[in-house]
Design a protein around this nucleic acid. Structure first.
Lengths: 137, 137
DNA sequence: ATAAAACTTAGAGTGCGCTCTAAGTCAATA
DNA sequence: TATTGACTTAGAGCGCACTCTAAGTTTTAT
């Protein structure tokens, strides 16, 4: 089962497992996020297990708000091989800090929203009481 | 200091305190997020303390990914007064769940990124060793 | 053999949330 | 009084990340 890494998938199959559209997969290749996917003799794309793993990681970066531009830089560094390891790590460390900031902000905002919900609950209780006792109508 | 709620601010002042551009403030009013800001005799906008509080809350909703469409619904409910309290609360409760999902996903993705950083650290250490011992060049 | 489906490329179109421009009115200062 | 600057409106334009279309070739199924 180790050899599964060599399984080659069609664009439709990759779309199914990555949840990206075939349009998006071609788009990612075109703008250099994927760079040179292998072709079958027919010219059709054949994705390797490594390609899938890379696409999945890209998806994590996108989901955490990394702009395409930065992902392009990251992909370019990857293409340059081992001597770019430190730069790739630094890029990810910066991004990691951004994600932590997002988390902090999201947590703060969540609290405010929860406070508001609680506030509404109290207002509702009061409003219901007024309505039931017939005051003012 | 309680009377500060009645202070009326110009659009520039509101832009300064809310960190929104004057363009965005007019845009929000135009699409019904703010609805009918008072005007001075000159026709210039005059924002109340309540307006500012509302804008700040809207900003929290935006920052947590609520689409403008939904904010418009929320603003509309607010305009309808007390009898929409329960609906407003429900809308916020749904949004609250979305925010919690965002937080969960962000946390999962952060972990993957951190793992990748750690992986790079290990590869770097190995690469440096190989380089120093002159193996392979 | 032929039709339907899937693939290819280049490039146009879309939806979101602003962001800016144009044309004009009003207000404050030299 | 003149001019600089802030304000008004309606509507066009923009950046991002896709998403789709058109035109053509290849593969698969009947």
């Amino acid at each position: 089962m180790v050899g599964d890494m060599d399984t080659e998938l069609s664009i439709q199959q990759v779309a199914a497992v990555t949840q990206l559209s075939t349009h998006t997969l071609r788009y990612y290749e075109r703008i250099g996020l994927l760079a040179a996917i292998e072709r079958a003799s027919s010219g059709h794309r054949r994705y390797s297990g490594q390609d899938i793993a890379w696409i999945n990681f890209l998806t994590r970066l996108r989901a955490t708000g990394m702009p395409i531009r930065e992902m392009q830089q990251f992909a370019e560094l990857r293409r340059q091989g081992d001597h770019s390891l430190a730069q790739r790590r630094q890029l990810l460390e910066i991004h990691q800090r951004h994600v932590q900031q997002q988390l902090d902000e999201l947590n703060r905002n969540l609290e405010v929203i929860q406070d508001k919900i609680q506030h509404y609950r109290e207002l509702e209780a009061q409003y219901d009481t007024n309505t039931l006792t017939g005051s003012k109508h």
